[in-house]
Amino acid sequence: MRTIIFRTVAPNLTSLMVLFSIFVLLRGHNEPGGGFIGGLIAASAFAIYGIACGVSPVRRALWFHPMAIAGFGLLLAALSGVLSLFQGVPFLTGLWAEPHLFGVPVAVSTPMVFDIGVYLVVVGSITSIALALEERDYD
């Protein structure tokens, strides 16, 4: 499967897919999308990259071990819930703020952070499975 065409296209495809996955993640609260689906897109992007160019470039590009990314995501999701405890409301209650960034109102919320956590868990777990499976075939 490591044809020259696939190998040339794959990095570009992967970066586009990752970008798209982040877009899908962030629009999720109002349009179809969200952390789960975004995570799946990003994971398949990395899987494609791995199939095309081998596993070690993917691992180098990711920098962290995918499982560590997943663990960080879980921590992030949990912490986003803990934040509400300091406000005296139950665990995981959504908190919203709308700071103005360069004059544009940007909605920041704990559900968003939670969703990013979901995204990272899905990306990390699926990618680490896919990469581990791919590793054997090409080394």
Binding site: G28, H29, N30, E31, P32, G33, G34, G35, F36, G94, W96, A107, S109, P111, M112, F114, D115, V118
Partner: peptide
Amino acid sequence: AHGRNIVNVIIVD
């Protein structure tokens, strides 16, 4: 929950 996508709002909130 300040979200129009009900599915996602259910999931994250």
